[in-house]
C-alpha cells in the first residue's frame, strides 16, 4: 500500500510531461519521417541524407567531444575549488557559494560580450600577456575550441559545484583525519578516500555539465564562431534559416539520443558508485 502510494507521487509530473513535453516530442519524431520541407511526403529521405553524409558524423563527434572537454575542464578546476570550500571557515564558505552561483546571474546575452572582451584579439588576456612580454603577437583565443571550452567552463561551474559540494560536505570529516593519521599523504587521501566517496555528486555534476554544454547554442556560435560546427548550429540553420523542419527534427533527435546515451552511461556509473556510500 505504502510502496504503491510512493511512486504515485511522480504521477502529476508524468502527466504534465506527457501533455506538454512528450506529445510535442512525438510530433517531432513524426515530422522527421517526411522527405520534403512541406511535410507532405512520408519517407526516410532526411534520415538517409543526414546519416549518409560523413560530415554529420564529424559534427556529432565534435559535439560529444566538446561536452567531454568541457566536463574535464570543469572537473579539473571545479573539484579543487570544492576541496577548498570544504576546508574553509563557514564565513568564507558563504562568500564562496555566492561567487559560485554568480555566473547564473549574468544573462547569456551579456556573458558572450564579456568573453569577447576577455578572449578577443585586443582583449584582456592578450593585452596583459603582451604587456608583460610573454607574447609579441596576439594569441587567437576567440573563435577557437579552447576559448569556447574556457567560456563554457564558467557558466557550467555552478551546475558542477552545487551537487558536488552538497555531497562532499556530508562526508564524515573523521574519514580524512583517519587517513592522514595512518600516514597517507594528502594526495593519497584525495584519490583513495575523498574522490571515491564524492562520486555521486561528481557524476550528477558531470551529467548536468555535459547536457548543458552540448546544447549551448549561443555560446557555441558567438564565442566559438561558425567555423566550429556543432549539432545545435545545424538545427538552427535547418529550422530557422532554410525551414527544413524534417531535417531539423532528424538532427535534434540525433542530438537528443547521443547526449542521452552518454548521460545514461554516466548515471549508470553514478548508481554503481553510490554503492560506496550505502554499502
Amino acid at each position: 500500500m505504502r510502496k504503491a502510494a510512493e511512486w504515485q507521487l511522480a504521477l502529476p509530473l508524468a502527466l504534465a510531461f506527457a501533455s506538454i513535453f512528450l506529445a510535442p516530442l512525438l510530433m517531432l519524431v513524426g515530422v522527421s519521417f517526411f522527405n520534403d520541407d512541406k511535410i507532405t511526403q512520408p519517407g526516410f529521405g532526411q534520415w538517409a541524407k543526414f546519416l549518409g553524409d560523413p560530415f554529420s558524423y564529424k559534427v556529432i563527434a565534435d559535439t560529444m567531444l566538446l561536452g567531454v572537454k568541457t566536463v574535464c575542464a570543469t572537473v579539473l578546476i571545479g573539484y579543487p575549488l570544492a576541496l577548498v570550500y570544504l576546508d574553509a571557515s563557514p564565513r568564507v564558505q558563504k562568500v564562496l557559494i555566492f561567487i559560485i552561483v554568480m555566473p547564473l546571474l549574468l544573462s547569456v546575452v551579456v556573458r558572450t560580450f564579456a568573453w569577447i572582451v576577455v578572449l578577443g584579439r585586443e582583449g584582456v588576456v592578450n593585452t596583459v600577456l603582451m604587456q608583460i612580454g610573454v607574447i609579441s603577437e596576439p594569441l587567437r583565443l576567440l573563435q577557437t575550441e579552447l576559448g569556447l571550452v574556457i567560456s563554457l567552463t564558467q557558466i557550467e561551474m555552478p551546475l558542477m559545484l552545487l551537487p558536488l559540494i552538497s555531497v562532499m560536505s556530508r562526508l564524515d570529516p573523521n574519514m580524512r583525519d583517519a587517513s592522514a593519521a595512518l600516514g597517507a599523504s594528502r594526495w593519497r587521501t584525495l584519490f583513495t578516500v575523498i574522490v571515491p566517496l564524492s562520486m555521486p555528486g561528481l557524476v550528477a555534476g558531470c551529467l548536468l555539465v555535459f547536457a548543458s554544454s552540448t546544447t549551448a547554442f549561443i555560446s557555441q556560435t558567438v564565442i566559438g564562431g561558425v567555423r566550429l560546427i556543432y549539432l545545435p548550429l545545424l538545427i538552427w540553420q535547418q529550422s530557422l534559416v532554410v525551414f527544413n523542419w524534417p531535417l531539423a527534427a532528424v538532427v535534434s533527435i540525433t542530438l537528443l539520443v547521443s547526449v542521452l546515451s552518454v548521460v545514461s552511461a554516466l548515471s549508470y556509473l553514478g548508481r554503481r558508485s553510490s554503492g560506496y556510500l550505502h554499502g
Binding site: T112, I116, G225
Partner: peptide
Amino acid sequence: VLSKVAAVGQPAAMPSLFQQGQ
C-alpha cells in the same frame, strides 16, 4: 585566405566583435 580571416561569426555578434577590435 581562411586562416588569415579574423572572425567567422554569428551575424548577431558582429557589432560587438567590431566594437572590441576583433
